[in-house]
């Protein structure tokens, strides 16, 4: 019985540890992105904020939302949304970014 309990506690510790690690990384990235925003680097400043957001959300998706342990079907569903958001951005920006110039 106590062995059982011990096993459970060990498992719980690992669970907390694993998630806390991700959480610490997230908070670290948050501080980093705030810090970077004050350094004038032109377009790099804007990009850094978005890039860090991409990393942070990937961490949430992969570890907290357990995509790492999910079936292929679930991963495809998650990917589908991202792919079509990509399409929407790419084609709309294809207009917006080339608009003023005439061929």
């Amino acid at each position: 019985m106590s062995a059982d309990r011990g096993r459970q506690e060990g498992w719980l510790l690992r669970l907390w540890l694993r998630n806390a690690l991700v959480w610490a990384a997230l908070l670290g990235l948050l501080v980093l992105s705030m810090f970077l925003a004050y350094i004038p680097m032109g377009p790099v400043t804007v990009t850094s904020g978005v890039a860090i957001a991409v990393i942070k959300s990937s961490l949430v998706l992969v570890f907290f939302m357990e995509l790492i342990r999910s079936r292929a079907l679930i991963r495809i569903a998650a990917l589908a949304g991202l792919v079509f958001v990509g399409v929407m951005f790419a084609l709309t920006l294809a207009d917006v970014l080339t608009r003023s110039g005439k061929i």
Binding site: F84, M88, L91, D95, R99, G101
Partner: peptide
């Protein structure tokens, strides 16, 4: 079907490249 919506906008002032 998700890639073609701009053909509704050829005269809208959309960029000619798009």
């Amino acid at each position: 079907g998700f890639f073609v919506w701009g053909h509704h906008m050829f005269v809208s002032g959309q960029s000619p490249y798009a």
